[in-house]
Amino acid sequence: MGSKQRAYDAEFREGAVRIVIETGKPIPEVAEELGVNPGTLRAALAALTGPVDPGWNGAADLHGGAAGVRRRQ
């Protein structure tokens, strides 16, 4: 049986993360709009900005772009 796992190129991942950061929309909302799993988007965000608090669902508390992402402590 074939795998349903998709591979997303770097440009797609960066664009998806940019949407979360610039719009302040929650990760689940952006993920649904793009047709990806929220965990996949959260992982892409973490890969580009560093570890993200697993309870963090959006960018409403971001100030100054990716530098404001809440990090795990």
Rank of each mutant, 00 (worst) to 15 (best):
P26K: 00
L62Q: 08
A44W: 14
E22H: 00
G24C: 09
G24W: 01
E29G: 06
Y8F: 12
K4A: 15
L48K: 06
A66E: 14
R42N: 01
I27A: 03
L62N: 03
A59K: 02
G68L: 05
R70K: 07
P38T: 14
P38G: 04
V20E: 07
N57E: 07
L62V: 01
A47I: 05
G55N: 15
P51Q: 15
P26S: 08
A66V: 03
G2H: 11
G50I: 15
I19D: 10
V20C: 09
R13T: 12
P38A: 13
A31N: 04
A60G: 10
S3K: 06
A43N: 11
V17C: 06
A44T: 11
G58W: 02
T40A: 06
G39H: 05
R13A: 14
P26L: 07
M1D: 11
I19K: 01
T49H: 04
R6T: 08
V20F: 12
W56S: 09
G24A: 06
S3I: 05
G50C: 03
L45F: 06
I21G: 05
G24Y: 08
P51D: 15
Q73I: 13
I21L: 03
P28E: 06
V30L: 10
G65A: 06
V30M: 03
A16N: 01
A60E: 08
A46T: 05
